[in-house]
Amino acid sequence: MSTNNLTTHNLLSAESLAQIDREVAKYPADQARSAVMGALRIAQVEKRYLTNDMIEFIANYLGIAPMMAYEVATFYNMYDMKPVGKHKLTVCTNLPCALSGGYTTANYLKQKLGIDFNETTADGKFTLKEGECMGACGYAPVMLVNNHSMCNHMTPEAIDKKLAELE
């Protein structure tokens, strides 16, 4: 169900739109809504976080009510509705990870970056988040970089190394 006032200008690169189209193609022709999670992810990868305009743009692109896309964007943890640093670091502190040093990792990061959970370093480089189980407990402690890259066994030494890698 589309609204009459389709946003006419694109908020996303042609490449991202092509990726979204590939997502849409996975689902039946009348179920473009299924691609909303993928589309929001692709938009977030390009822009780092989701603005309301972007959510509305994607909703219109898929022909769904903006509120439907907004519900999705605010329900799932990994979408960022506020600006985040260049690198978002999410540390799992759930029980299995906690038993193997999850909090140690988190505290080390807090101290090293000088920020708490849900904060961003002054230079805008890092944002720290507390995560729930990432389904990788055997590799604890685990840290997720920018939602898509999992780092295992994040001992303080491993963290130092990783942070140095992240430009």
Binding site: M1, A65, T74
Partner: peptide
């Protein structure tokens, strides 16, 4: 809004 009015103007955000 979704079923009777035809357009989901209201939603339940967050979780």
């Amino acid at each position: 809004t979704e079923e009777i009015a035809g357009f989901q103007e209201l939603g339940m955000a967050n979780r």
